[in-house]
């Protein structure tokens, strides 16, 4: 793990919710780095801190302690506007509940980040991504006219279109059927292999994690294990072991 090659890096991340007896430690000094052109899955039981880690790494949430770098930029000390611009230029998001804007067509949703920045998108990049995600025929439809899988692919295209340092995906297959899930994950993996993207994905499905190059296991706010070249079975075994330890 060479730090210089990392797309996103975090060290000593700590996050607590509540106070006193009711305080919950969501992240407990996490050190982690996601390298460029790598597809990383983060797994862990509910309440292990996966989502909090995601939010902190993506600059959506502020950690209580520790530091996050996206590309070469340190997040602490940035103003809200600087953080927003950073998110727009360097981070792509994929949420479980697609989160497309209902008033915009698929294409307008995809180019929304450019719209917000007031820049013209690079047509070649758009064409490449639209074709990679198989959305060519659907570009002028509204989200309500698309299936769940198609909507999530639009969201995926939106995340990729700015050619960000990292794509953060929070349970992207959570609302999809197995067929749509498989297709989305295949396309995500291809964007890493062929387009050179970096993807970090939180999931609780071993079959989804199996698409990743590497799986990190989180428990009680700490990274407890790591697995390279995962398969659905090996991930499932490791999860079961973790849950036993947790008890």
């Amino acid at each position: 793990m060479t730090q210089e090659n990392a797309a996103v890096r975090a060290s000593g991340l700590t996050k607590r919710y509540g106070s006193g007896d009711a305080a919950v430690t969501a992240l407990d000094g996490v050190d982690v780095a996601f390298e460029k052109r790598e597809f990383t899955a983060i797994m862990g039981p509910s309440g292990s801190g996966k989502s909090t880690l995601m939010h902190c790494v993506a600059g959506l949430d502020k950690p209580d302690g520790g530091e996050v770098w996206i590309g070469g930029t340190k997040l602490s000390g940035l103003s809200d506007d600087q953080l927003t611009d950073l998110r727009r230029e360097k981070v792509g998001f994929l949420f479980q509940a697609y989160n497309l804007l209902p008033t915009l067509t698929a294409l307008e949703n995809i180019t929304l980040p450019f719209d917000l920045a007031g820049r013209r998108p690079d047509q070649k990049v758009i064409d490449r991504i639209v074709d990679a995600l198989g959305l060519r025929q659907r570009l002028h439809h509204r989200p309500t006219e698309l299936s769940g899988g198609q909507q999530q692919r639009v969201a995926c295209a939106r995340a990729l279109v700015t050619e960000p340092e990292v794509v953060i995906a929070d349970e992207p297959t959570g609302a999809l059927d197995s067929g749509s899930s498989a297709e989305l994950l295949r396309r995500l993996k291809r964007s890493v292999d062929e387009l050179g993207e970096t993807v970090v994905m939180v999931t609780h499905e071993p079959s989804a994690a199996a698409y990743a190059d590497r799986v990190l296991f989180l428990a009680d706010g700490r990274i407890v294990d790591e697995m390279a070249e995962p398969t659905a079975d090996s991930v499932l075994d490791r999860m079961k072991a973790l849950e036993k330890v947790g008890r």
């Binding site: 927003t84 611009d85 727009r88 998001f93 949420f95 989160n99 497309l100 804007l101 917000l116 920045a117």
Partner: peptide, 16 residues
Amino acid sequence: TREIGVVRAVGARRSL
């Protein structure tokens, strides 16, 4: 609220 949240997440400044 939700729509605005999405636009914020995708990179719209508060002033925008």
